[in-house]
């Protein structure tokens, strides 16, 4: 049963959302969600890489020999990652400084390589594009949600702006900002997603 492009797009947003359902790409999910701008930026960078590499790999899937496909995937993904890195350096330098090593590390993130191997090498351009866009946006939303929880409760700010609705007596729950806090937060999110997904 062939799925439509629209279904390929929406699966990335809910039923196969990368960090919570596929449990892929967790390293930046933990490290880049201290602040909302970091999480959002990371998500968009991954989206750009995913859409680009998905489309290109599915276009070239007849040209790429089976034996060396992984090497070719990595070259394609790495090219897009370096393009993103240069663009971020040129236009969003402050964010680039904050995200640091995690931008080049998108190359070894399992999502772009996994999609290339599991999806684009077998499917056409349109479903691959839809898949990349859906997965990327799903990843962006996931990271942003996690970052909102961590930044609001852990630091009392939102997009680096202090927020007032928590009241003046609010004390930042700084555990949320630390690395163990990221694990606990991610675990709770996985738990909620599993409860919601229960049939």
């Amino acid at each position: 049963m062939a799925k439509t492009a629209f279904q390929e797009f929406t699966k990335g947003l809910w039923s196969e959302v990368p960090p919570y359902r596929l449990v892929l790409g967790l390293c930046p999910t933990l490290a880049m969600t201290k602040q909302v701008d970091m999480g959002f930026g990371m998500g968009l960078a991954v989206t750009f890489v995913l859409v680009g590499s998905n489309v290109l790999i599915s276009l070239l899937r007849k040209v790429i020999p089976k034996n060396v496909r992984i090497a070719c995937f990595i070259v394609v993904v790495a090219t897009f990652v370096i393009v993103v890195e240069l663009l971020m350096q040129a236009y969003t330098y402050e964010l680039f400084l904050k995200m640091g090593i995690f931008i080049p590390l998108i190359v070894v993130n399992c999502i772009p390589l996994g999609r290339a191997e599991a999806f684009c090498y077998k499917k056409g351009v349109l479903p691959s594009f839809a898949d990349g866009l859906g997965m990327g946006l799903g990843y962006t939303i996931s990271l942003t949600v996690l970052a909102i929880i961590r930044e609001v409760f852990g630091n009392g700010t939102f997009f680096n702006q202090p927020i007032s609705f928590l009241g003046p007596s609010f004390q930042p729950f700084s555990f949320m900002i630390t690395a163990p806090g990221a694990f606990v937060c991610l675990g709770l999110m996985l738990c909620i997603m599993n409860l919601l997904g229960k049939k």
Binding site: P65, V68, A71, A78
Partner: peptide
């Protein structure tokens, strides 16, 4: 030979694109 040519071409094209963006 085909494997060599394909991977080499991939590398060369990607290098060219990156040099341009840079």
């Amino acid at each position: 030979l085909r494997l060599f040519v394909v991977v080499t071409l991939f590398g060369a094209i990607s290098g060219g694109i990156l040099a341009g963006v840079r």
